[in-house]
Design a protein around this nucleic acid. Structure first.
Length: 500
DNA sequence: AAGTTCAGCAACCGCCTGATA
DNA sequence: GTATCAGGCGGTTGCTGAACT
């Protein structure tokens, strides 16, 4: 379980050669400049002796008393991180990892406080672990927090209550989430175009957050937001899966890839999909796995990690896949039951983005059916109706009325961005929905929708999804929107769509 | 086999805070 | 009230070994 001490000691930096050590020790006496860099065993011994003699604290006195050419800070750090007794060394146990995730969800980057909750662990260790973990998850597109942890923290589970107050400011903010009333002032207008919007708006915010939790009964499965196959292929363990859950996940993966590939006449090969062979999908091609940016995103259960704003902001400069975003697939995967049972779509148990999207799609379809002015010819309707329904009229009407707000933007999109602080800094999440719906919303729309984000950061928000090439027609693939048709159908496949 | 990338880690840096003179 | 200092904390850097190409 623990990394062997041999391995640690073999690291030359931590254990300088005897020559190095000799030269370093020549720096003793406190007369020369303070030494920096790795500690030698001799220095360690001196420090330990000093602490045993004088106790902890008064670190600047170490230099005086022992002649160690180290600043007080360095001594304190060395002691607290490496020399003090009862330190646990080695890799974190699963229990510890779990605890760290919980604590971070609750506290944010309060490493020292987290360390206080983890006996034998130092803040530096925890910080390093977290940063490494976050990097890894980011790279694979996985959410930082498992869903159940989010729920636990947001809902205030007994455990998290025992941990004290919720100190993660972002989380607090989101816990008190409210959609500014001003964003609904033109709701009436919007309803003319999207009569289902109110229903969408009624979806409890919590259930948005709970995507993938309520319906993913097993092991709080949170799925990759991109590069799924690589996640699975790779040697990295999938942190939220084990045992049978993994099998189940693979089944979902197969199904998801099939469903993604079908409209594009692709095989369901994970590799093919991952490698970006999707015709015209330059976004996927560009989205190489080394990119830490989440280039697109539906709702991800990423709670505050305070280190991403800049990097994720960059992600807006990247092309957006013309395909339904992989996150959307994630969402679907996360709610496998909804694939099987339409009756559950609107059930409380499986509420969330999927339901919102499905509901929208369903409403669209119902509207299509009810509307006599729309042809029943499936080869014509979906795309055209989408265009006429959501693009031109809305766009024109919004322009005319000076109301740039997207109906959807009021609801899901804003909720998403509100609830996904880490990547929401980049406003990733909403775009997948709009992208799925193949909406062409003006850039101004977004800035108004996301007024909170705009206030939060001064950097102009760029949302590529609203760029001409960010919709279904991006990447030179298509102005031919017949390929896009109904995005939900595209996403789920006609089999499923015909059922609902 | 060589080069590149990645993961993990120790240590440093700068800022902040609280105590004390 | 303020200047100084010690300590704490979070962010970042840089190094190493391992894994990968």
């Amino acid at each position: 379980m623990y990394e062997s001490m041999d391995k640690r000691m073999s690291r030359s930096r931590r254990n300088p050669s005897s020559d190095e050590e000799a030269s370093m020790e020549g720096n003793f006496g406190g007369l020369g400049p303070l030494k920096k860099g790795p500690w030698t065993s001799t220095e360690d011994a001196i420090l330990v002796e000093h602490v045993n003699k004088y106790g902890e604290g008064n670190w600047n006195a170490v230099q005086k008393h022992s002649g160690l050419s180290r600043c007080g800070k360095s001594c304190r750090l060395r002691w607290t991180n490496h020399l003090r007794p009862n330190l646990k060394k080695g890799t974190f146990s699963q229990e510890e990892e779990r605890r760290i995730i919980e604590l971070h969800a609750k506290m944010g980057n309060k490493w020292a406080r987290m360390a206080a909750e983890l006996p034998g662990r130092t803040d530096n260790e925890i910080k390093n672990y977290w940063n490494t973990r976050v990097k890894r998850l980011q790279r694979t597109g996985l959410p930082v927090y498992p869903a159940d942890v989010c729920l636990q923290v947001l809902n205030g589970s007994p455990e998290s209550l025992n941990m004290g107050t919720l100190d993660n400011p972002d989380l607090q903010q989101r816990d008190n989430f409210e959609i500014p009333a001003v964003e609904f002032e033109n709701l009436e207008l919007n309803q003319r175009f999207l009569p289902y919007t109110p229903m969408l708006l009624e979806i409890p915010v919590n259930s948005m957050v709970k995507i993938g939790t309520d319906s993913s009964h097993s092991n709080s499965i949170m799925l990759p937001t991109m590069h799924l196959p690589k996640c699975l292929r790779g040697s990295e363990t999938f942190p939220y899966l084990n045992g049978s859950a993994h099998t189940t996940f693979n089944q979902y993966m197969d199904y998801a890839c099939e469903k993604i590939a079908e409209p594009f006449e692709l095989s369901s090969s994970h590799d093919q999909f991952q490698m970006g062979v999707l015709p015209g999908s330059h976004a996927l091609l560009n989205d190489n796995s080394s990119s830490s940016e989440t280039s697109s995103g539906a709702l991800k259960l990423e709670l505050p990690s305070l280190q991403y704003s800049d990097t994720h902001r960059d992600s807006w400069g990247t092309p957006v896949s013309p395909l339904p975003s992989i996150e959307c697939i994630d969402t679907l995967i996360q709610s496998p039951s909804t694939w099987q049972d339409h009756s559950e779509i609107c059930s409380p148990r499986s509420s969330g983005l999927l339901e919102a999207v499905l509901y929208e799609s369903q409403s669209l379809r119902n509207s299509k059916k009810d509307s006599s002015q729309w042809t029943s010819d499936p080869s014509v309707v979906p795309c055209d109706s989408m265009d006429s329904f959501s693009l031109d009229p809305c766009e024109k009407e919004w322009e005319m009325c000076g109301d740039p707000n997207s109906p959807l933007g009021h609801s899901a999109a804003s909720v998403f961005s509100e609830y996904t602080p880490m990547s929401s800094r980049s406003l990733d999440e909403p775009k997948s929905v709009e992208a799925m719906m193949d909406w062409d919303i003006e850039p101004g729309t977004v800035s108004q929708i996301s007024s909170k984000q705009v206030e939060r950061k001064e950097t102009p928000i760029q949302m590529d999804v609203f760029k001409p090439d960010a919709s279904c027609s991006s990447g030179g693939r298509v102005k031919d929107k017949s390929i896009c048709k109904d995005p939900i159908a595209m996403l789920l496949g006609e089999d499923f769509c015909s059922d609902y």
